[in-house]
Design a binder for these strands. Structure first.
Lengths: 199, 199
DNA sequence: ATATATTGCGCAATTT
DNA sequence: CAAATTGCGCAATATA
């Protein structure tokens, strides 16, 4: 599961480094959160019904509680001026690749220079457009999912408080009754009965 | 709080529409989720402590429960081949702006054509690089926030179940005691005492 | 006004 | 092969 560690931005990468693949791996800070997608920490078992609350009032202060990651400027300084991006058609994935490391797993294949698809190609634009739509849709979905989770958390928090309260109430009642019963076998047994009726 | 309703992608927009501002508003589907940032539905009041759980096991099936948004292909068809992105230096915000509306609040100032910063400029690259770092940092933060929320939700859910259970338990005890007390004034009063001791 | 923080967007590499 | 995800950089904004 080799994550897309494509450091240098694709677009820029093109006119910057003709051989995008390989090289510079392990640059991703914060553990490159690859599992993020499928590893959405369940959410299952809960019906997303009645989710119309949405009272946006909180402030959310995460307090910057993370260690000071340098957020290493990956491409920094690699970017010469030259307003790049001009016309670099023919997909950059093409020819050549750095095979310097003598490892080369048995099944490992070269770049293969896929099917050269020019960026002028109508098909290219079609693909791009479709992907853009998919991306918007996907992000929209993610946004909703996040909102749902937040709402669910708030809802659970409220419910929790209510339950805690109820527990306190029940506990007190129990204490009272227990006390009363403990008094049952003692001298004056009438007052006890009186207290009971008041519950 | 005019949201960044910049529909047509900035980059593309440049060589597409020299006058980015104004025009085409209200194109954003899904209510344009603008409040997303500051309106993070509180989360306050909760200490993000002990958050080390992270057992990623759930499956999360959101079930595509959203209406079928067309995810309108904004720029679609507007994209002629021409491998754009070429050289569109000088920030687009430059010169000219549509002052058509006769409103012009007193303090409102013209476009001012800011400080023309060429993309070749070293300062431009510096700014970009710094922004890129900020973006990575910000997204990292967001990722963590989301994870925290998910974990908190799960945690609350578990706690909830425990509380519910406890309530059931207490309720039962109460019923028992109440029943016992209600029997106090009836014939045989010895068995009651026995039951009480078993609690 | 400057610097940093957020956010929507398109691209390309991967996944599913 | 198509759609879904995801990391990334860009530019417009929002905040500080």
């Amino acid at each position: 599961m080799q994550m897309c560690e494509s450091r240098v931005s694709s677009v820029i990468q093109e006119w910057l480094n003709p051989y995008p693949n390989q090289a510079h791996a392990t640059l991703n800070p914060t553990s490159s959160s690859p599992a993020a997608s499928t590893n959405l920490v369940s959410m299952d078992l809960i019906s997303y019904s009645q989710s119309q609350g949405l009272r946006g009032s909180g402030e959310d202060r995460l307090d910057e509680q993370m260690m000071s990651l340098p957020y290493l400027p990956y491409t920094s300084s690699c970017l010469s001026g030259t307003t790049n991006s001009g016309n670099h058609h023919q997909n950059p994935t093409g020819s050549m690749q750095d095979f310097s490391p003598p490892f080369l797993l048995p099944t490992m294949r070269g770049p293969v220079a896929k099917r050269s698809i020019s960026k002028d190609s109508a098909e290219y634009r079609l693909r791009r457009e479709r992907n853009n739509i998919a991306v918007r849709k996907s992000r929209d979905k993610a946004r909703r999912r996040i909102l749902m989770t937040q709402q669910r958390a708030l809802q659970l928090q409220e419910e929790n408080q209510k339950l805690q309260m109820k527990i306190g109430q029940l506990s007190q009642e129990l204490d009272t009754l227990r006390h009363i019963l403990s008094q049952q076998h003692l001298p004056g047994s009438e007052e006890a009965a009186t207290v009971v009726s008041s519950i």
